[in-house]
C-alpha cells in the first residue's frame, strides 16, 4: 500500500487535529480542571476531590465515547455503502439504529428488571441491530435498484417508529423519560470502568473491517463482478452485517441512535481522498468520524449554558442537508 502525498497529508492533518480537539473537548465546561488534576484522576484517583471526580467520571468518558461513536459509525457507514453499492447507505438510513431503538424501547418498557439494566440495554441494542441488518440484507436481495433499497430502509424506519410510539403510549411516565432521554442521544452515559470493554469490542470490530479490505475493494464493482473475481459474497456479507451489528449496537446502546454520521463521513472521505482503496477509506473514516463527533460535542458543550442540544439533534441538523446535497449530486 503506497500512500500518495496528498493522502498522507490529509491523514496526518487528521492525526494532528484529533489530539488538539480532544484537549479542547476536555477543557470546555463550566468548571475548569487543570491538566494535573486530569493526570491525577487517571493514575492516582482521590475520591474526595470534586475536580478529579468530574475529570474521571464525566470528562474522560465523554471524550472517549465521542471518539468511539464517531469512528465506529463512520466505519460501519462505509462498509454498508460498499456492500450495497450505494452512497446513501448507512446504519441510520437503512434502519439499523431503528432496530436497536425498538429493542431498547421494549427492554426499557417491558418492566423486566434484567432488560432494563445496562447489560440488558446493550444486549437488546445488539440484537436489534443484528436482526435489522439481516432484514435489510433480505430486502437487498429482493429489490433491484438503489432507490428501492433506501425506500425500504426509510419505510422500515417509520414502521418501527410507529411501533415504538405505540409502546411509549402504553408505558408510564418514568419509563417514557428514560427512553426519551436515551433516544435524544448522549455521550455522557458511559462510566469510567466500562471504557476497557467498549474499547476492546470496538477494536475487534474495526480490525474485522481491515481484514476484509480486499473483498471490499472488489465489491466496489458490484456483486456480480465480485463473484466472477472469486469473492465469496455470502461470507463477506455476513461479516459486514456482524461488524455493523456489533459497532452500531454498542454505540446505539450507550449513546442512543446517532443520525447521519455513518452516512455523511464516508462520503466526505471519498470526496476528499478520491480513491476506492478501502485501507485508506477505513482509516480516514475512522479519524474523520472521531473528529466530526468531537467537534459536534464541543459545540454542544459550548452551547450548554444557553440551551440543551442533544447530540442526535446536532448531527441531524448538519447531516440532513448533507444528504439532500448528495442526492442532488448523485442521483439526478
Amino acid at each position: 500500500m503506497v500512500l500518495s502525498k496528498k493522502h498522507s497529508f490529509i491523514l496526518l492533518a487528521l492525526l494532528i487535529c484529533i489530539p488538539i480537539f480532544a484537549l479542547v473537548h476536555l477543557s470546555v465546561g463550566q468548571i475548569s480542571i487543570t491538566p494535573k488534576e486530569f493526570w491525577q484522576s487517571l493514575i492516582n484517583f482521590h475520591e474526595h476531590i470534586p475536580n478529579e471526580i468530574i475529570a474521571r467520571e464525566i470528562r474522560i468518558p465523554r471524550l472517549f465515547m465521542a471518539l468511539i461513536a464517531g469512528a465506529s459509525l463512520s466505519v460501519v457507514g462505509l462498509l454498508m455503502q460498499t456492500l450495497f453499492n450505494n452512497p446513501l447507505a448507512g446504519p441510520y438510513v437503512l434502519g439499523i439504529n431503528s432496530g436497536s431503538s425498538l429493542f431498547v424501547a421494549l427492554s426499557i418498557m417491558t418492566g423486566i428488571p434484567f432488560f432494563a439494566s445496562d447489560l440488558g440495554i446493550i444486549t437488546n441494542a445488539l440484537i436489534g441491530a443484528f436482526l435489522f441488518g439481516l432484514v435489510i440484507l433480505f430486502f437487498s436481495r429482493l429489490v433491484r435498484t438503489q432507490i428501492a433499497l433506501l425506500l425500504v430502509g426509510l419505510m422500515l424506519g417509520s414502521f418501527i417508529s410507529a411501533f415504538v410510539s405505540f409502546i411509549q403510549s402504553a408505558s408510564d411516565a418514568q419509563e417514557l423519560k428514560v427512553f426519551t432521554l436515551w433516544a435524544l442521544g448522549s455521550l455522557q452515559k458511559v462510566e469510567f470502568t466500562q471504557i476497557p470493554l467498549i474499547l476492546l469490542v470496538t477494536i475487534i470490530g474495526i480490525i474485522g473491517a481491515f481484514l476484509i479490505i480486499k473483498p471490499l475493494n472488489i465489491l466496489v464493482l458490484g456483486e456480480q463482478e465480485a463473484k466472477l473475481l472469486g469473492v465469496n459474497i455470502k461470507r463477506v456479507r455476513l461479516i459486514i452485517i456482524v461488524i455493523t451489528a456489533i459497532l452500531t449496537g454498542l454505540v446505539t446502546a450507550f449513546c442512543g441512535p446517532i443520525a447521519f454520521v455513518g452516512l455523511a463521513v464516508p462520503n466526505l472521505v471519498r470526496i476528499l481522498f478520491k480513491t476506492q482503496q478501502h485501507f485508506i477509506l477505513i482509516t480516514a473514516s475512522l479519524l474523520m468520524g472521531a473528529l466530526f463527533i468531537l467537534i459536534c460535542d464541543i459545540i454542544i458543550q459550548l452551547a450548554e449554558p444557553y440551551f440543551m442540544l442533544p447530540i442526535n439533534v446536532l448531527t441531524s441538523i448538519i447531516g440532513a442537508p448533507m444528504v439532500i446535497f448528495f442526492i442532488l449530486n448523485r442521483l439526478r
Partner: peptide, 29 residues
Amino acid sequence: SSHFPNVDFLKVEEFIALGRSSFTSYFGK
C-alpha cells in the same frame, strides 16, 4: 459484462489490477 461498473474515484490502473484478485495475497497486494 455488457455494463461497465459505474464507480466514482476508481482509477483505471486500480480497476485493471482487480483482475489479478484471484492471484494476489490475502490483502490483495
